[in-house]
Design a protein around this nucleic acid. Structure first.
Length: 495
RNA sequence: GGCCCUAUCGUCUAGCGGUUAGGACACGGCCCUCUCAAGGCUGAAGCCCGGGUUCAAUUCCCGGUAGGGUCACCA
């Protein structure tokens, strides 16, 4: 039987990284087995569902490359189907209408918990035939004896006790299905063979199997994934930082790094840490998924992102960077949902970076920043001195490096730069700097650092010869002398 | 509270009765070096506790403890 799996998020919030991981596991399982991966939007909660959340789900999945093999279905558009199923159950006597008031239900629950019992519906309307359809809910008539067996692909064999399950609500009073009903109805309709989902849904599997049995449908397989926790071992939430997937795009993470990190939460392939998407597909199997919950570790994600940044070719990395910059405005909303997240660095003139005639120096710049950036935000930051006309001189850098000692080397370099328009190649520049240091009998650092601070305003930049070269290409040859002269003025006058 | 799940360095994990308990992130040191990274070498750090089973338990079983999940006309 061909594998059919699905991801069924509800659009009641921006696409969460936990949901993304679940989707990824489903996706990998489908691809690994030449099966199909489906997307279903569970928008049965009219109060909380929002269009923008649906968009964020689709945008997020598109970003990480999790593509549905069939057009997504929306539960809000399937009322007729659900209605016919309700009618079937009702006419077969497998479900019944219930008009118990909220108050009665609350009292019931309160008194049950007071006695140390699990709150359960007491079957008050189970045998009634006089309940009006208007304003009533529909409950499934569940067996109160016996057991239900579950073979979970991750947790193994399990037995549910029917005494623990009450006659739960399958249709709300407005006639729309509850989650418990809609999942089953649609997993069946979509021919889902294996339900891979979060472990928090484990208990509800009992109710769902009972519903499959009421209909006489084949029960799919189940695989419950261990949860993702925050650093305090509590369920991952906004308190732990950004939880929406697209916030990570804004923070400069690569989609492949996100997938790589998320797949390693609960899944391992020997000692391997770094995976490309095709490798994950090739190596992913359900039986190597662990059972214990995993703490989300931003440090490791950061490291992994750096690994993936360094793995990319210059052209690919440039595209990824531009894509990140392109989405900064629209992704702002995801950052705002995560208080405490630092703001990304923006470039003043994105159009200039996109200009095809600038492509050569842009790629040179990206290549020069690649090795020292763990995120695209860091890359932007490193690139900044090459992208703006008037740089800010870092006060500490100036105080430390632009001292009296720096005057002679800077003056020498200024003269050399003025005589070489355009600059020679990187080796020649290095040769000149090296010789200058030797002739002054100082270390190369005593030459390079003042130049670095002079032309970038900072103590950190790509190798100094590369820095000079890219700067000339991006801002024009004149910028070099301009900044060197400016730096010379920043050196305190000798006593 | 009822029901359920989980338990290897701080974190992610490998292990599937006999290992000097391996790798990775983070952390410390050293090397490389024009800065910052990256890279290389290296150090510290772990089988939750108690009973069994067994010639032998990190590994199997039971109990405890701790953490987590779930008990809605949310999903």
């Amino acid at each position: 039987m061909p594998v059919r799996v699905r991801c069924a998020p509800s659009p009641t919030g921006y696409l969460h990284i936990g949901v993304t991981r679940t989707a990824l596991f489903n996706f990998l399982h489908a691809r690994h087995n030449q099966g199909r991966f489906l997307l279903r939007i569970e928008d049965t909660d009219k109060e909380r569902s929002r269009e923008e959340y649906t968009r964020s789900i689709q945008e997020g999945f598109a970003w990480v490359g999790i593509h549905s093999d069939e057009p997504p279905i929306f539960q809000s558009q399937r009322q007729e189907y659900y209605q016919s199923l309700f009618n079937q159950l009702l006419s077969e006597g497998k479900a019944y209408r219930c008009d118990c008031s909220k108050e009665r239900l609350e009292e019931l629950r309160a008194s049950q918990s007071a006695r140390g019992l699990t709150p359960q519906y007491d079957g008050h309307c189970r045998e009634r035939t006089d309940v009006s359809p208007a304003g009533s809910v529909i409950r499934l008539k569940t067996p109160h004896e016996g057991t239900v067996a579950l073979q979970d692909s991750i947790y193994g064999e399990f037995t549910f006790n029917n005494a623990d399950c009450d006659d739960y609500v399958i249709a709300k009073s407005d006639g729309t299905p509850t989650y418990q009903f809609a999942v089953v109805a649609d997993d069946h309709a979509q021919g889902v063979t294996l339900v891979i989902r979060g472990n928090d849904l484990f208990p509800s599997t009992h109710r769902q199997i009972l519903l499959y049995q009421a209909f006489g449908w084949d029960v799919p397989g189940f695989a419950h994934l261990p949860m993702i926790l925050g650093a305090d071992k509590q369920k991952l939430s906004k308190r732990h930082g950004a939880t929406s997937l697209l916030a990570y795009r804004a923070m400069g993470y690569l989609p492949q790094a996100m997938c790589n990190y998320l797949v390693r939460l609960g899944w391992a392939y020997g000692d391997q840490e770094v995976f490309q998407m095709d490798e994950m597909i090739e190596k992913f199997t359900i039986d190597s998924i662990g059972k214990s919950p995993a703490v989300f570790n931003p440090d490791k994600l950061l490291w992994l992102n750096g690994e993936h940044i360094r793995l990319l070719g210059i052209s690919e990395l440039t595209e990824a960077w531009l894509d990140h910059l392109d989405h900064l405005d629209e992704d702002q909303v995801y950052l705002e949902a995560a208080p405490g997240t630092s703001q990304p660095v923006r470039v003043p003139d994105l159009a200039a970076l996109r200009n095809p005639s600038h492509r050569d120096w842009v790629e040179l710049l990206v290549g020069a920043c690649q090795g020292r950036s763990s995120t695209l935000v860091q890359l932007t930051d490193h690139a900044l001195p090459f992208l703006i006309r008037d740089i800010q001189y870092d006060a500490k850098a100036v105080a430390k490096v632009l001292n009296a000692e720096a005057r002679i080397p800077l003056t020498e370099i200024l003269g050399w730069v003025q005589k070489h328009n355009p600059l020679p190649d990187e080796n020649r520049i290095h040769e000149f700097l090296d010789n200058l240091a030797k002739s002054l009998d100082i270390g190369l650092g005593k030459v390079a650092q003042p130049v670095r601070v002079a032309v970038t305003g900072r103590t950190v930049s790509p190798p100094i010869n590369t820095t000079l070269l890219i700067l000339e290409k991006s801002q024009g040859h004149g910028i070099l002398a301009e900044r060197l002269q400016k730096a010379l003025l920043l050196i305190p006058k000798a006593e």
